[in-house]
């Protein structure tokens, strides 16, 4: 009962505070919205880039070709040597005859190959799976040292480039978002401090008649939460609308790009944005009244 009437008191006081400097509160909500929107886009960006990497990573193959004819024994021996290379997980061998048969089967009826090429032009192929994307270049280099291998191909260069990009974006993003949070926190603190200063007598009286520090703090913390959650709600609305249009347009323009549309994952991002807003406001409210409580 008593906790409930306390809560009511805190909430009423919090809204009185907002009502006392409505413009400033509005500005603070706006700034929190901007910050959280940027934060949200940053998270969505990192998630999408990560998704691109893992989709590409699923095709972690090195293909190596041997042009000259191989006997079955030669091929088996080569396969053993390839398997011995550090980081190789699996090796599949496709002889040039098998490949040619597959090829002809696949394209029979579509192309009159017999008229164009009479002889099998395909090489013998070893498809090699490696354990993780980072070691692709090293494994590829080791494979190309084998004399019989004529050519080595892998898509690892792009993958590692994208991966480096993701790392860079993540790092820069963290620093940027951190600074942004800091600046926003300052604005929230100063907004609520206006209320605190306007209520110096209230706080003095509260302390005089024996209100505990936490009791004095709560209305300001709640004021902060209202500002933070307000900003969070606007940011989520903004993010949802923009991301949905953007995702749709990107998918339409670049169908091969795997855009994240998993609604659970997106809900998690939006929830994170909202919670971050609430935290930001809460911390802001807490700090804003601290100085006054200390020297009382």
């Amino acid at each position: 009962m008593s906790t409930f009437s306390n809560l009511e008191f805190f909430v009423v006081e919090a809204f009185r505070g907002i009502g006392r400097s409505p413009l400033m509160s509005f500005v603070a909500i706006g700034i929190v919205t901007v910050t959280l929107t940027i934060f949200g886009f940053f998270m969505l960006g990192v998630i999408n880039l990560g998704n691109v990497v893992s989709t590409m990573g699923a095709k972690l193959d090195i293909t190596s070709y041997v042009n000259k004819d191989l006997s079955n024994r030669d091929a088996a021996e080569l396969e053993v040597r390839l398997k011995k290379i550090d980081g190789v997980e699996k090796v599949n061998y496709y002889s040039k005859d098998d490949s040619w048969k597959d090829f002809k089967e696949e394209y029979s009826g579509k192309l009159e190959l017999g008229e164009v090429v009479s002889e099998n032009p395909l090489p013998n192929t070893f498809a090699i799976k490696v354990r993780s994307p980072e070691i692709l270049p090293n494994v590829a280099a080791a494979i190309s040292k084998i004399e019989e291998i004529d050519e080595v191909r892998y898509s690892g260069k792009l993958i590692s480039q994208v991966q480096n990009l993701v790392e860079a974006v993540r790092l820069a993003g963290f620093v940027f978002v951190f600074l942004l949070f800091f600046a926003t926190l300052l604005i929230v603190v100063n907004t609520i401090r206006l209320t605190v200063l306007a209520r110096e007598t209230d706080i003095y009286i509260m302390r005089l008649v024996g209100a505990t520090s936490s009791f004095v703090r709560w209305p300001f913390v709640i004021e902060g939460i209202v500002i933070g959650v307000g900003g969070g709600v606007f940011a989520v609305l903004l993010l949802r609308a923009t991301y949905e249009t953007l995702a749709f347009k990107v998918s339409a323009a670049f169908p091969f790009l795997p855009v994240v549309t998993d609604s659970f994952l997106l809900s998690m991002v939006f929830a994170a944005v909202g919670i971050t807003g609430a935290m930001l406001g809460m911390i802001g409210g807490y700090i804003s009244v601290s100085r006054l409580l200390k020297n009382a």
């Binding site: 009962m1 008593s2 009437s5 306390n6 008191f9 009286i205 008649v209 024996g210 209100a211 009791f215």
Partner: peptide, 14 residues
């Protein structure tokens, strides 16, 4: 009433 509220007094007493 403020002086009672801020000490967390029960509403029925305030």
């Amino acid at each position: 009433a403020f002086a009672l509220q801020v000490t967390g007094a029960p509403r029925s007493q305030i």
